[in-house]
Design a protein around this nucleic acid. Structure first.
Length: 948
DNA sequence: TGGGCGCCTCAGG
DNA sequence: CCTGAGGCGCCCAA
C-alpha cells in the first residue's frame, strides 16, 4: 500500500483483518442482467432500464437486506466497490491483437444503461472504479491481493471463471443470480484442480469467446488430468515428450507457444496503478434521499418504496435531508480566473479527458462566432471537471486573416484533432455532461458531428426549482447562488457596431472569461442539483425538463421550409394597399404624419381633430390601440378606419413578410427558430429569432402568410392540435361535472356554456350569445376580472360583472377552484400543475391591491396553462421514439403551445397523422388519469395553412 | 451620430 | 393570463 499523510488516512477506514471487502464485477453483471432479466422500459419515456433495475436490486440486497442469502452467508460488507471495464482496448491487445476481437457491440437497448448503472452506483454512495487500459478483472485482482495480505475477506460478486484464479482461503466469489458461493472447494469440484492452478487450466483450454487460443484438443477434463500429473503448465510443456497419447503430445508441442501466450492473456494483473485505495471503499451510512431521487427518476416504484420504508425506520431525513454532514459540501475554492489552464496541445486535452472519465462528469461550454447556433462557428471549448478545475481550449481564434497580433493563435490545436478527442467523451454514456442552456451547445456540436449525451442543464434545474422567483440566465444564477459576478461578454468584446466576435479576441484575454463560464456552470450544478431531491422536483426535472434539449435542438436544426417568393409577393401586395390607406388618412387629417407613430396619431386625432378619447395608456397618454380606433370608426370617423387598416398591413409586412425573408438560413434554405426553454413562468416554451409561435391566423390577410410555410418536394406538412385543452384541464382540475360531461359528449362547449348561463337552447343559438360565452370561458382561464371581460366584449363593467356572477352561479365549482388556488398560493407561495411543476407567486401577498390581484390571476392561470404545457412536452419527448418505432420518417418541426407541426413524405401522411394523434392523446399515460378526454385534430397539406 | 432602453401596439396561444 | 418583435422617441456618450 502506498503511504498517505496522517490527515488523509484518518478520514478513511483502513481495511483490517476480519473486514469484508465486496468487489462487484460491474461490467460482467450488466451483460448478464441484460440477458437474464426480462426487458423493462421506463414508462415515462420508454428508455430501456432492465439491467439497471436488476443491478439496483442487487446492490440494495447486498447493502441493506440482512436476510439476503449472500450477505447471510458471507457477512455484511465493511468495504464495497463496483468495478467496471474502461474500454475495449487494454494492455492485452498489445501482446495479442485478436484478444476479445470478436466481441459484438453491445445491443442498442443496453448501451444507454451503462451510464445509468454508473449513476446508480453513485446514488448508492459507492465508489465507481475503472481505469483506462485495464479490465475490471485486473482491478479486482489488484484489490483482492491487497486485501489478502491484510487477511481481510474478499467477496467478488461475479461468476466469471477468469476471476477464479483469485480464490483462496480469504477470497471467494459469489454468483448473485444463482445464489451460489464459489470457494476453493467449489472450484475443485467443478474443474478438478484448485484455484491456484486455474491460470494454467485456462491457458490450456483457451476461450473461444475471448479469442484465447489455448491448445486444440484439450478440454477441461484433460487439462485437469495433465495438471494433476505435471503440476504446472510450464512443467507440462517442458515434458510434453513424455505424454503417451500421440494426438495430445503433438498438439501440446506444436501449440506450446500458444499456451504460453494464453497464460499471459488469462493471468490477471495484480499490480494495476490504482488511483483509489481500498480504504476509500469503506461502507458509509446511506444518503437515502439521494438514492430515492435516483430511483424515482428511474421509476423503480417497488424498490423506491422499499428504500423509503427503510429510511423511515432509520429515521433518515427524507425528503428533507438537511444535516450538513449528509449534504456533499465539497470545500469549494473561490473562483479564481487566473488559475485556469489554456489548453493548446492534444496531449493536455487527452489528460483532461482522462480526468473527466475518472470524475464521471464534465461541464461544457462552447464559444462561438454568434448567438445563432445554426450559423455560428465553433471558436473554442470550455471544460470543467470540478470546482476551480477548468480550462479553455481555443481552436479557431483569428480565423479569417488576423486583424491583430496574437502569438497564441499559432499554438491552437487543429479543430478536427480536438473534436476527435472530445467526441468519445461527449458521447460517452458513462460521463454526464453539464451545461447552462445546453440546447445551444448541443445543437452547435451536432453540426460538428457530435451528439452530446447524457446531459444535465443548470438552467433547466433552476427552472424546475425556482420558476417565478428569478430568471435562469447564468449571470443571474451565479450572482444568486455563488455570490459571484461573472465577466460580461461585452466587457471583453465591446459593444455595438464595433463588437468583436469571439474568434477576434486575443486568446490570453478570452481564456479567463471562457473558462470561468465552465467553472461557474459546474459550481451551479453542484449548488442546484441536490435541491431537486430535497425539494422533490427530481421527477419533474427528469421527465419534463432534462429530455428537452435533445428533442428541441433536433427540431431547431430541422427548421421549416419557407417560400420566399410567396413572401415577396405578399410584401408588395400589402405595401401597395398601405400606400392607399396612408394617402387617405393624410387627406382626412389634412397634413402629413407618421402613421407608425402612436404619439403623432394621438396628437392629430385627439388634439387637432378633437375626437373623443377612449382609454389612457400606462403613462397617461391617450391610447390609439386597435379597439379604440375601432370604436371611433364605428362612430363614423373614417380616418380611424384608415389607420387601423394601415397598421394591420404594416404589422404583417414589418413582422412577417419582410422580416421572415431575412431569417432564411443560406445553407439549409429553411427558417430555424430558437425555442426558449426557461423563459415563461408556466412551463410553456417560447419561440424567437424568429418567433414562429405568433404567425397570423385570425385574419384573412394574416393567414396568407401561412401559405409561405411549405413542405419539401414530395412531402407534406402535418399539423396536430389539442382541441380546447385548457378548458378541458380546467374542467378536470376544478372537477366540474357538467363541463366534464359536455366534453365527454363532445358537444360545442361555448354553446353549452351560453345555454347554461342564459337559459337558451343550443339549437339555433344567436352567434353573439355564443361569442359572449366563449369570451367568458377564456376569461375564466385567465383568472377573469370584470374589467378584463368588459374590455374584451366592449360592454360596460357592470354588465360584465353580471355575466361573471351568472357564470359562477351555474358553475359554483369554478369559484371554489379559484378561491382554493388563491389560498394555496398564499400558504405555500406557489401553485402547481397536474404533473407537479411549480410556479412561485411571490407577489400574492403584495400590499398594493392591483399587484395582488394580478398575482392572483397568474396563480389561477398557471396551473391550467402549465398543465397543458406539461402534456404537450410529454408528447414531444415521446414523439421521436414513437415515430421511429412505427418506421415513420416524419420530422417534428414546430410547436405552437397546443399544436405540433411535422414534415413527412406525402405517402406517409395518413400513418403519421394517426400516430401523432395517438401519442398526443395518450400523453398523460400512464402516470396520470385525466377525467376528460384529450382530443387531437390533425390535418395535412402542402403548406401550413392547408395543413391546419 | 448611434447605441440603449422603455413604451406602445399587436401577432399567437 | 402567457409570450416576442418592431417601430418610435427619448436620453446619453462620443
Amino acid at each position: 500500500m502506498s503511504d498517505k499523510s496522517p490527515q488523509q488516512a484518518s478520514q478513511k477506514a483502513p481495511l483490517k483483518k476480519g473486514d469484508r471487502l465486496y468487489l462487484i464485477d460491474g461490467s460482467a453483471y450488466i451483460f448478464r442482467a441484460y440477458h437474464a432479466l426480462p426487458p423493462l422500459t421506463r414508462k415515462s419515456d420508454g428508455a430501456p432500464v432492465g439491467a439497471v433495475s436488476g443491478f439496483c436490486n442487487m446492490l440494495w440486497k447486498l447493502l441493506a437486506d440482512v436476510n439476503d442469502d449472500a450477505v447471510k452467508e458471507m457477512g455484511t460488507p465493511t468495504h464495497f466497490a463496483v468495478i467496471f471495464d474502461h474500454s475495449s482496448e487494454t494492455f492485452r491487445n498489445e501482446m495479442y491483437t485478436e484478444y476479445k476481437a470478436n466481441r459484438d457491440e453491445p445491443p442498442d437497448d443496453l448501451k444507454p444503461q451503462f451510464a445509468m448503472i454508473r449513476d446508480a452506483v453513485r446514488a448508492f454512495g459507492l465508489p465507481c472504479i475503472e481505469l483506462q487500459g485495464y479490465e475490471a478483472d485486473d482491478l479486482i485482482c489488484t484489490y483482492a491481493r491487497q486485501a489478502e495480505q491484510l487477511e481481510a475477506e474478499t467477496i467478488i460478486i461475479s461468476s466469471d471463471k477468469d476471476l477464479m484464479q483469485l480464490i483462496s482461503e480469504h477470497t471467494i466469489m459469489y454468483d448473485t443470480m444463482k445464489s451460489r458461493r464459489i470457494g476453493v472447494d467449489e472450484v475443485i469440484e467443478k474443474f478438478g484442480v484448485g484455484p491456484e492452478k486455474m491460470i494454467d487450466m485456462q491457458a490450456l483450454i483457451g476461450d473461444s469467446v475471448d479469442n484465447v487460443p489455448g491448445v486444440p484438443g484439450i478440454g477441461p477434463k484433460t487439462a485437469a488430468q495433465l495438471l494433476e500429473e505435471f503440476g504446472t503448465l510450464e512443467n507440462l510443456l517442458e515434458n510434453a515428450e513424455a505424454i503417451k497419447q500421440n494426438k495430445r503430445r503433438e498438439s501440446l508441442i506444436e501449440h506450446a507457444d500458444n499456451a504460453r501466450l494464453s497464460k499471459k492473456l488469462v493471468t490477471l494483473e495484480c499490480n494495476v496503478p490504482i488511483e483509489a485505495e481500498i480504504d476509500d471503499f469503506v461502507v458509509t451510512p446511506f444518503d437515502h434521499a439521494r438514492l430515492i431521487e435516483f430511483l424515482e427518476e428511474m421509476e423503480f416504484t417497488t424498490l423506491t418504496k422499499r428504500v423509503r420504508t427503510k429510511a423511515d425506520q432509520a429515521g433518515a431525513d427524507v425528503p428533507e435531508p438537511s444535516a450538513p454532514a449528509a449534504a456533499p459540501a465539497p470545500d469549494t475554492k473561490p473562483i479564481d480566473r487566473d488559475a485556469y489552464e489554456t489548453v493548446f496541445s492534444p496531449e493536455r486535452l487527452r489528460e483532461w479527458m482522462a480526468r473527466t472519465r475518472e470524475r464521471g462528469h464534465l461541464a461544457v461550454d462552447t464559444e462561438t462566432t454568434g448567438l445563432d447556433c445554426m450559423t455560428a462557428r465553433l471558436v473554442g471549448v470550455c471544460l470543467s471537471t470540478g470546482p476551480g478545475e477548468a480550462c479553455y481550449v481555443p481552436l479557431t481564434h483569428g480565423g479569417e486573416g488576423l486583424a491583430f497580433d496574437d502569438e497564441d493563435v499559432g499554438k491552437q490545436m487543429k479543430l478536427e484533432d480536438a473534436l476527435a478527442i472530445l467526441k468519445p467523451v461527449l458521447e460517452d454514456a458513462s460521463v454526464l455532461k453539464i451545461g447552462q442552456n445546453f440546447k445551444y451547445d448541443m445543437l452547435l456540436l451536432s453540426r460538428y458531428g457530435i451528439d452530446v449525451a447524457p446531459i444535465d442543464d443548470t438552467m433547466l434545474i433552476s427552472y424546475a426549482l425556482d420558476c417565478g422567483i428569478n430568471g435562469h440566465g447564468m449571470d443571474e444564477l451565479a450572482d444568486k447562488h455563488l455570490g459571484h459576478t461573472c465577466i460580461k461578454f461585452t466587457d471583453i468584446a465591446g459593444t455595438g457596431k464595433k463588437q468583436k466576435t469571439f474568434d477576434q479576441l486575443v486568446i490570453k484575454e478570452a481564456a479567463p472569461y471562457a473558462a470561468e463560464d465552465a467553472d461557474v456552470t459546474f459550481r451551479l450544478w453542484q449548488a442546484l442539483k441536490p435541491r431537486l431531491v430535497s425539494e422533490r422536483m427530481a421527477t419533474l426535472y427528469a421527465t419534463l425538463e432534462r429530455p428537452m434539449p435533445a428533442v428541441i435542438s433536433a427540431m431547431e436544426r430541422e427548421g421549416v421550409k419557407v417560400d420566399c417568393d410567396v413572401l415577396s409577393r405578399l410584401s408588395s401586395e400589402f405595401n401597395q394597399r398601405m400606400g392607399a390607406h396612408e394617402a387617405a388618412a393624410r387627406e382626412l387629417a389634412g397634413e402629413d404624419f407618421n402613421l407608425g407613430s402612436p404619439k403623432q396619431i394621438s396628437d392629430i386625432l385627439f388634439g387637432q381633430m378633437g375626437l373623443p378619447g377612449g382609454k389612457k395608456t400606462k403613462t397617461g397618454a391617450w391610447s390609439t390601440s386597435a379597439d379604440v380606433l375601432d370604436d371611433l370608426a364605428a362612430q363614423g370617423y373614417e380616418i380611424a378606419r384608415e389607420i387601423v387598416n394601415w397598421r394591420q398591413l404594416s404589422k404583417l409586412v414589418g413582422t412577417y413578410t419582410d422580416a421572415l425573408q431575412k431569417d432564411l438560413n443560406k445553407d439549409t434554405g429553411r427558417v430555424h427558430t430558437s425555442y426558449s426553454l426557461a423563459s415563461t413562468t408556466t412551463g410553456r416554451l417560447s419561440s424567437n429569432d424568429p418567433n414562429l409561435q405568433n404567425i397570423p391566423i385570425r385574419t384573412e390577410d394574416g393567414r396568407k402568410i401561412r401559405t409561405a410555410f411549405i413542405a419539401e418536394e414530395g412531402n407534406v406538412l402535418v399539423s396536430a392540435d389539442y382541441s380546447q385543452i385548457e378548458l378541458r384541464l380546467l374542467a378536470h382540475i376544478a372537477d366540474i361535472t357538467s363541463l366534464k360531461q359536455a366534453f365527454s359528449d363532445g358537444v360545442d362547449i361555448h354553446a353549452m356554456t351560453a345555454s347554461e348561463m342564459f337559459g337558451v337552447p343550443i339549437a339555433g343559438m344567436d352567434p353573439m350569445v355564443r361569442r359572449k360565452a366563449k369570451a367568458i370561458n377564456f376569461g375564466i382561464i385567465y383568472g377573469i376580472s370584470a374589467f378584463g371581460l368588459a374590455n374584451q366584449l366592449g360592454i360596460p363593467r357592470g354588465e360584465a360583472k353580471d355575466y361573471i356572477d351568472a357564470y359562477f352561479e351555474k358553475f359554483p365549482g369554478i369559484r371554489q377552484y379559484m378561491d382554493d388556488t388563491k389560498k394555496t398560493a398564499m400558504t405555500h407561495g406557489y401553485v402547481e400543475t397536474v404533473f407537479g411543476r411549480k410556479t412561485h407567486t411571490p407577489n400574492i401577498k403584495a400590499k398594493i391591491p392591483a399587484q395582488r390581484s394580478y398575482a392572483e390571476r397568474q396563480a389561477i392561470n398557471a396551473p391550467i396553462q402549465g398543465s397543458a404545457a406539461d402534456i404537450i412536452r410529454r408528447a414531444m419527448i415521446r414523439m421521436p421514439y414513437a415515430l421511429a418505432r412505427s418506421k415513420l420518417s416524419a420530422r417534428m418541426l414546430l410547436q405552437v403551445h397546443d399544436e405540433l407541426i411535422f414534415e413527412c413524405p406525402a405517402d406517409q401522411a395518413n400513418d403519421t397523422r394517426e400516430l401523432v394523434k395517438q401519442v398526443m392523446e395518450t400523453a398523460c399515460d400512464p402516470v396520470l388519469k385525466i377525467s376528460v378526454p384529450l382530443v387531437v385534430e390533425t390535418g395535412a397539406g402542402l403548406n401550413w395553412d392547408e395543413a391546419h
